[in-house]
Design a protein around this nucleic acid. Structure first.
Length: 405
DNA sequence: TGTGTGTGGGCAACGAGAGG
DNA sequence: CCTCTCGTTGCCCACACACA
């Protein structure tokens, strides 16, 4: 008989705690309450909670730890929206339905993102490749504490068979999933970007260890250590996303005008803002907009930029951030001209434009046009430099020179 | 070997100004 | 008001080389 006293501790247990807990998180996600991260791919967005993503993926966890932005927007390239949606659903509910045809790519994406319960499935799969694929067309993936089970919905007589058997029966040959390090460079890994700054996951997707994609400058390429990358992302560089607002009300607040007042895709009413601006609307209060990398521009300057094309946006930002003289006398990366020796004129190597501004432009343009490759933006910047140089070297008309004298 | 880069050259669109 | 000319700007292709 247990002795009763005032110090006796009572264990109060909520029997349906886990069920209710997960159900409430699903509700929060469905209603988009307290969401604090946006995943974007294929032009669509999925709002979620960092807490859930971090709990289910060490990759996301590291990503969020290194990027303290209040509401980061993660652009995921080469990831199918449906797969991403399914992964989020899996992380919230612990199970998801996947068509068999989609399973290899789905699991590959899960592996790249280190989704708990699904990466474990792949490890199991790797160890047993000899099993054949069944004829089932739809499966349910569901996570059960420390492992992942795969349940074939089409087989109603299937009981609680163990994970290995289920998975091995249904997964495609592992060579489609488990790639060598060489294959890893062929971009089935979903490159990620936080607010427009890419950090390509490696074969094993170790966040923060990969250089940012468009850090082509040598001095920045060397920043491949986790610490360096983490610092770079955290120390005021988290606001690569659009600094605009998600709704017209904020436009009113910032500009004192309606978002419908402007035309031609210029700043305030650009259609892209909705996907990009959950962060940093506070920067508007000082009439300056952070492009990231410590680069800021005035709102009125930004308003004059055309937003309907990435080329125009790139050129506009270049005109804002660089003087005509800078553009005329410098190149994007400072790389020696390829015809340096063959051209005969042996012109000196142009110094590079400010790398921070270049990266800020690229990040900002990519935050608006995620599908545009950084190299294309660089090319536009190179055009701009060339044109400015041509204008500078153009002979001065006689009449104008006479006037100046 | 594939990709990235800087530049030459050419073309098109646009706007300003002159002339009918 | 219309047309034409000219200059400016933007875009693209091609090329050769650097680099991973």
């Amino acid at each position: 008989m247990v002795e009763m006293s005032n110090e006796q501790l009572f264990c109060l247990r909520w029997n349906n705690f886990q069920t209710n807990f997960t159900a409430q998180f699903e509700t929060l996600r469905a209603e988009e309450d307290f969401v604090d991260v946006t995943l974007a791919c294929e032009g669509k967005r999925i709002k979620a909670h960092k807490l859930i993503l971090s709990a289910c993926s060490p990759y996301f966890k590291e990503l969020f730890k290194c990027n303290p932005c209040k509401h980061p927007i993660i652009f995921m390239q080469d990831v199918e929206y449906e797969h991403l949606l399914s992964l989020v659903e899996f992380m919230y509910s612990g199970e998801v339905n996947i068509a068999q045809a989609q399973l290899p790519n789905f699991l590959h994406t899960a592996e790249c993102l280190q989704i708990r319960g699904l990466t474990a499935a792949l490890q199991k799969k790797k160890s047993t490749e000899s099993e054949k694929i069944s004829n089932s067309k739809t499966m349910t993936l569901f996570s059960n504490e420390n492992n992942t089970k795969l349940k074939n919905q089409s087989r109603t007589n299937e009981s609680n068979s163990n994970f290995e058997n289920n998975l091995d029966e249904r997964l495609p040959p592992s060579k489609k999933i488990c790639r060598s390090s060489d294959q890893a460079h062929h971009s089935r890994d979903p490159p990620l970007s936080i607010d427009g700054v890419e950090s390509k996951p490696g074969p094993l997707l170790q966040p923060k260890t990969e250089p940012i994609e468009y850090f082509s400058d040598d001095e920045i390429k060397t920043e491949t250590s986790p610490r360096a990358s983490a610092d770079f992302m955290s120390e005021g560089h988290s606001s690569y996303s659009m600094q605009g607002s998600t709704d017209t009300s904020v436009h009113h607040n910032q500009f004192g005008e309606s978002s419908q007042e402007n035309t031609q895709g210029s700043w305030p009413n650009r259609r892209y803002s909705q996907t990009l601006n959950e962060t940093n609307t506070r920067n508007f209060s000082s009439n300056r907009v952070s492009l990231g990398f410590g680069v800021e521009v005035r709102v009125d300057q930004l308003r004059g930029v055309k937003w309907n094309d990435y080329r125009k946006l790139t050129r506009g930002l270049a005109s804002i951030l660089f003087s005509h003289q800078e553009l005329a006398t410098r190149s994007v990366t400072g790389q020696r001209w390829s015809r340096y020796f063959s051209a005969g004129d042996a012109r000196p190597v142009k110094p590079a434009l400010d790398p921070a501004k270049i990266h800020a432009i690229i990040a900002y343009v990519r935050s608006v046009f995620p599908q545009v490759a950084a190299s294309h933006i660089k090319q536009v910047l190179a055009y701009k430099c060339k044109e400015c140089a041509a204008a500078v070297h153009k002979p001065v008309p006689l009449n104008s020179s006479a006037q100046s004298i």
